[in-house]
Each structure stands twice: as structure tokens, then as C-alpha cells.
Design a protein around this nucleic acid. Structure first.
Lengths: 118, 118
DNA sequence: CGGTATCCCACAGGATACTG
DNA sequence: CAGTATCCTGTGGGATACCG
């Protein structure tokens, strides 16, 4: 590697594209929240909806489909009476624990800071 | 604390609101990218725009204003000829390093996984 | 260079109603 | 319960032009 060329700029570009890649799949208002809700344990559609404040059925439905497509969530249909549909996070979703932890602890810290300020 | 009540559910709710709080200020398509671009060092408006692929002047301008309002970025005007405006991240923005690191390393990991799969 | 002003539209996502 | 269908609005954000 040529050390006369600043590695900082390259590292920055890499971070930029990596963060872009991450946001592409887990960005948006709801994806991470759905995952967090399911980390607590498998849940059914309405249970998830009740866990997440403000999400509509239509949006939750589409978010779950995308999460399933990207391998974060498994949809399990228990045939029987009544039919029960259960959503479960996959092992792959566990790879997000670092992101989730840093995000939630930063969020808590930030909220406290705002409260102290005003 | 009453141990007969599951702490898991409460912890989940806390994470949910903390992540909500975090996304409220650093969510969206561009905020984190602008911060990452400036972590490399202070930059001027057009330099930032060139660093971040796809961002328009109008959007960059409004993102910078919000970031300034939230204490992540400082705007420094060097009067002179020509006038030079420089954007610099604040110390507070450094508190995001954990989020940034986990997000970028997860993004890189995920991208590699996708490449291996197809 | 460092923006602002305008215009515009695609789309995320809210509300409500309805179905198997 | 587990969604789908419909409708609709807000707004994020692109394109272009212009200004000090």
C-alpha cells in the first residue's frame, strides 16, 4: 500500500459505503424496531403491532415481508384452529446486536443529555 | 424491583424508545453520512458534497443546518477574500463513534455475505 | 465558491374499511 | 386473528436555475 496517499480518505470512503449498505437494508423508520420487538421472543402479528407504538397494519405487513426477504425474520404458520402465524427472528438477525446495542445506548444517553439541558 | 414481572418486556420497551430517540436525530438517508464525511477533517460545502455520492446541494444544506442545530456540526465562516465556510464536527459528534463503527462493520460484513451468496 | 429558491414527484407511510 | 385493499397526504429529496 502506498503510504504517501492518505489512508484516511480511503477509510472514510469505505465507511461511507459500508454505512450506506447497512442503511439500505435496515434503514427506514421501522425495520430495526420490528427486529428489537422480536428479540424479546417470537410474536404474532398483532402482538408485534401492539409492541411498536404507532405502526399500522399495512406498514407492519410490508416491513415483515422485507425483513423476511432479507433473512432477518422467519414466518411460521401453525395450521390448526385457529390458524396462528408466528414471526421469529433468525440467527442472522443476531449479527445486528452490536448495532442495536450502540444505537440504543446512544439514544438513551442523548435523551438524558437533552433533558439535563432544558 | 418485582421479579415476578418479566424484565425482558420492559427492557425491550426501553430499547425500543431509545432506538426511536436515536433515529429521531440521526435517522434518515444522509445525517450519518455527513458526519462520517466530516470525521475525516473539516471540510467546505462543496468538498462535503463531493465526498458524499448523490447528495444535492439543497439537501446537503438542510442536513447541515439540522446537524448544527443538534450540536453535531459547527459552521465556521472565515471572512476574507474569498469568504471560506468550513464545517467541523463537534466533540459531541464523537459520542457517535460506537454507532458508526458497529454500523459500518455490520454493513461491510453484510455486503460480503451477499456477494458470497450469489 | 456557498449556498437559496422553485418546482415537482415518487413514495413512505397514516387512516379506514374490509376479508378469510 | 392476520392480514389486504384503497385512498390519501406529507415530505424527502431530485433537477434546475439563480444569487452574492
Amino acid at each position: 500500500m502506498n503510504r504517501t496517499i492518505s489512508p484516511t480518505s480511503e477509510a472514510c470512503t469505505n465507511r461511507l459505503t459500508s454505512i450506506g449498505d447497512a442503511l439500505y437494508v435496515i434503514g427506514g423508520k421501522w425495520k430495526l424496531r420490528v427486529i428489537v420487538a422480536l428479540l424479546e421472543g417470537s410474536k404474532r402479528f398483532n402482538e408485534i403491532q401492539r409492541s411498536i407504538d404507532g405502526i399500522s397494519a399495512r406498514v407492519l405487513s410490508s416491513e415483515l415481508k422485507e425483513l423476511e426477504l432479507n433473512g432477518f425474520v422467519t414466518r411460521i404458520v401453525h395450521t390448526g384452529t385457529p390458524i396462528v402465524v408466528e414471526y421469529q427472528i433468525t440467527e442472522y438477525a443476531d449479527t445486528l446486536s452490536g448495532v442495536l446495542n450502540s444505537l440504543s445506548s446512544w439514544g438513551a444517553m442523548h435523551r438524558d443529555k437533552l433533558r439535563r439541558e432544558r
